[in-house]
Nucleic acid binder design. Structure first.
Length: 507
RNA sequence: GGGCCGUUAGCUCAGUCGGUAGAGCAACUGGCUUUUAACCAGUGGGUCGCAGGUUCGAGUCCUGCACGGCUCACCA
């Protein structure tokens, strides 16, 4: 920790406070109210009624401002959510407590006991009869007017960010409300919330590079999970018909405004449902979450306005490519049905493709470039190539496509769902195709999970499942452009990468 | 990994053509018994991210590095 003239001055103040006979870091404070409770209960109370009611309170908080005026003082303090003013007069306080006041600094915690009143300018205040010292802030808080703007400091010292910027606090309060609303939605529909392993012996269930660690006692590698999918489906095999899990996934890949190495995912599975049922369910889920956490069904995200009014647009991947083609002569859907046509389309847009990639990857690439950034209003994209979907059931009319959708909002992928593949033999063939791609050098192809195939062989009822990226949903509903602004402690490089500071390397 | 931009007091930011390092808030001293971005008078505070280079002289120009931001690539 850095020491400077400020910290030294504050340490002297703390020593002076101790010399006055106050405990330096006392335990607890018996309070009658929080600041927020007082402001909520009495904020609109007229002054004369307050006086008549003679409300006495004991309330703690962090000091935000001190106006010392000779023999009287005002202290504004906060519980993090609301602010309240204390009025102290030399005549009305024990001498020691008046001396204590002069050793208080911005950022300190105090408790005040006294009677509520309104000043002549009308501000609700506590007329303090007892001042209690609670905690010294050795490091001064950020500037009270300009806040903390330095983005790096805001992420590295989120505590200081939260002290200084109440809009940041509001984002994380809303994040909690969104997740609560999701839980209520699924609980009310008879879904069981479950917890499946975070450490997996095989990193499967998604196409992504994993983080690897080592279990010492078992002397084996373990992977931080990239997806809970295969475990949740094992639970469907086991007889739970509706399950959901909200938890972290870990992917060892690049960082960006939309990617953090650990991110929060909702996954849910419902027996006897199809991906079409889940489109309806997803509309219901998100409209309900928006209704409970936003002022209306229309939100502002950056430059755009997004309406969650149902029904939402539904397009096949091929239709989306045609609809958002950048020039006036898009390819036809029939043209996009085979490799040659997709190659012609890629060539027209001058999108280079690695030679080993097949039809599915190329169609997906075309979609990502042409359509994805333009899917601002909630849009379901259906009919994904089978090659891109090793865990999804094929469409009844064409085995080259699967019964799958992704939901796009604000140009971001927010959900991914499909009718689950429950044929163990077909699942094995799909895994083997992935292994072949892995052998060709695609280190993100999905590894084969033998026990998962065995589970399917016990019989998994027809099932549909879905994943929803919670961080991106929170970004949309709180109008934040970076995923780091909806994650309390986003990943950054260490600020001082000294060798001593790094943990010893595991053998 | 590439490109562009940034890093100056505790915080927010200026700093012109290369010529003694600036402001507001915060801090310190004094004054002030209903202030509210309190006010009045005064004072102190700098490894200009780090390391080199050019120059009589570098916050400013050049090179390298670190960290961060945006973006592209990668990646659901």
């Amino acid at each position: 920790m850095e020491e400077n003239e400020y910290t030294q001055q504050r340490r002297r103040n703390l020593a002076d406070i101790a010399a006055l006979g106050f405990p330096s870091y006392p335990a607890g404070y018996r309070r009658t109210h929080s600041v927020s409770q007082i402001v909520t209960a009495y904020g609109a109370y007229p002054g004369d009624e307050l006086e008549a009611a003679a409300v006495t309170v004991r309330v703690p908080g962090r000091i935000q401002a001190i106006n010392l005026m000779g023999k009287a003082a005002f202290i504004r303090f906060t519980d993090g959510a609301a602010m309240l003013q204390a009025y102290l007069r030399k005549n009305d306080l024990p001498e020691q407590e008046w001396l204590l006041l002069k050793r208080l600094d911005l950022g300190d915690f105090i408790g005040v006991a006294g009677r509520l009143f309104r000043t002549k300018t009308g501000e609700l205040s506590v007329h303090v009869e007892q001042l209690t010292f609670l905690t010294k802030a050795i490091i001064p808080p950020p500037d009270k007017h300009y806040g903390l703007h330095d983005i790096e400091l805001r992420y590295r010292r989120r505590y200081a960010d939260l002290i200084a910027n109440c809009d940041v606090r509001a984002v994380f309060v809303k994040r909690a409300q969104i997740i609560q609303a999701i839980r209520r939605f699924f609980d009310a529909r008879g879904y069981l919330e479950v917890e499946t392993p975070m450490l997996h012996p095989i990193a499967s269930g998604a196409t992504a590079r994993p983080f690897v660690t080592h279990h010492n006692a078992l002397d084996m590698p373990l992977y931080a999970r990239i997806a809970p999918e295969l475990y949740l489906k094992r639970l469907i095999v086991g007889g739970f018909e509706k399950v959901y899990e909200i938890n972290r996934n870990f992917r060892n890949e690049g960082l960006s405004t939309r990617h953090n190495p650990e991110f929060t995912m909702l996954e849910f599975y419902e027996a006897y449902a199809t991906y079409e049922d889940l489109m309806t369910l997803t509309e219901e889920l998100l409209t309900e979450v928006v209704a409970q956490t936003c002022a209306s069904d229309t939100i502002t995200y950056g430059e755009v306005t997004i309406s969650f009014a149902r029904p939402w647009r539904r397009l096949t991947m091929q239709e989306a490519i045609v609809a958002h083609w950048p020039t006036a002569d898009p390819p036809t859907i029939a043209e996009l049905d085979d490799l040659a046509g997709v190659n012609r389309a890629l060539e027209r847009l001058k999108l280079p493709m690695a030679p080993h990639l097949g039809y599915g990857q190329r169609l997906g690439e075309l979609f990502e470039h042409v359509a994805e950034p333009n899917l601002i209003q909630p849009t379901f994209i259906t009919r994904f190539p089978t090659e891109l979907s090793p865990l999804a059931r094929h469409a009844d009319d064409n085995p080259n496509f699967v019964d799958r959708f992704e939901l796009f909002i604000g140009g971001m992928e927010c959900a991914n769902a499909f009718t689950e593949l429950n044929d163990p033999d077909e699942q094995r063939r799909r895994f083997e195709q992935q292994l072949a791609e892995r052998a060709r050098g695609d280190d993100e192809a999905m590894p084969l999970d033998e026990d998962f195939i065995r589970a399917l062989a016990y019989g998994m009822p027809p099932t549909a499942g879905e994943g929803v990226g919670i961080d991106r949903l929170v970004m949309l509903l709180t109008n934040q452009r970076s995923i780091r602004d909806v994650i309390l402690f986003p990943h950054l490089r260490p600020e001082n990468a000294t060798p001593e500071a790094l943990p010893a390397t595991a053998p």
